[in-house]
């Protein structure tokens, strides 16, 4: 069976989803269910002291028993903050060590700061974390992150939350061709065809949040994304036909076509 293997663990779903920007936990839960995702990202934030002590916790809805929880470092702008955040996450999740590293470079574009990302990755790998790393679509950066020991590299398709789709398939192709660890597109997917294109390129998976959460009907979009990732994967495995400017031969036989009406009358 075709499985996604990350850090020695197999997953049947190649769609990874975030839990941000949903209306409420019920919608989060329904959308993730519809996506079929097995790996689900969460953020780590300060708890509201003294406010709503009875408030439900995300992990009561998206439980670590059912899903592989992937804590992220969203909002971190330095290697030091990212490392601290993930050490807290590991404590929060009882020693769980699969994490998503992302170190941002600027609050407007959310473009990754690769210098800080490389530094954080090095510290985290030495500290025993299994690091899935969000990165720019620079093939050399992706290779260096792999060499540091990251268990998956996750280049952006376009900027976080932009929904602009796959802007540089050629760079992604080079990253995929050179990688010995799974390559997942993380960020920029806007609709189902974007996810399918990523998978057709040979990506091992796709991680998305806003494309589902900001759809008019998030649960329906989650279902669409599930199918798009599956369809793209199957198309990649099937091997597409070569592109040609025009067909050398039509699909239907050229022999046995009935005579043109005008010719019959003439005979």
């Amino acid at each position: 069976m075709d499985q996604l293997v990350i850090a020695g663990k197999s997953y049947s779903s190649r769609l990874l989803v975030g839990t941000g920007k949903y209306r409420d936990f019920a919608q989060t839960s329904a959308a993730i269910e519809a996506s079929g995702a097995q790996i689900v990202t969460v953020a780590i934030r300060r708890t509201n002291i003294g406010q709503n002590p009875g408030e439900p916790n995300l992990l009561d809805v998206i439980t670590p028993r059912r899903y592989t929880i992937l804590p992220n470092t969203a909002g971190c702008y330095t290697a030091q903050d990212a490392v601290r955040t993930l050490r807290l996450a590991r404590e929060l999740l009882d020693g769980h060590d699969l994490v998503k590293l992302e170190v941002l470079g600027d609050p407007q574009t959310l473009y990754p700061n690769m210098v800080e990302t490389l530094s954080a990755a090095e510290t985290l790998v030495k500290d025993g974390f299994k690091v899935m790393v969000y990165c720019s679509d620079d093939p050399i950066m992706a290779k260096q992150l792999e060499q540091i020991g990251c268990v998956a590299v996750m280049p952006l398709a376009s900027l976080i939350g932009s929904g602009m789709g796959i802007l540089n398939p050629w760079n992604l192709q080079i990253i995929i061709d050179n990688a010995k660890v799974p390559v997942l597109v993380d960020a920029g997917v806007g609709t189902a065809s974007d996810a399918a294109i990523a998978m057709e390129l040979g990506c091992d998976g796709v991680l998305m949040n806003t494309a589902i959460a900001a759809a008019r009907d998030p649960v329906l979009m989650a279902s669409a994304m599930k199918k798009a990732v599956q369809a793209g994967r199957e198309a990649y495995l099937a091997g597409r036909m070569p592109k040609k400017l025009y067909a050398a031969a039509p699909s239907s036989p050229t022999d046995g076509v009935i005579a043109p009406a005008s010719q019959d009358r003439a005979a």
Binding site: K21, T41, R45, T47, N57, L92, I160
Partner: peptide, 10 residues
């Protein structure tokens, strides 16, 4: 002290 929880995020 920093006290953190998991919240929704991508």
């Amino acid at each position: 002290l920093e006290i953190v929880v998991a919240v929704g995020g991508g």
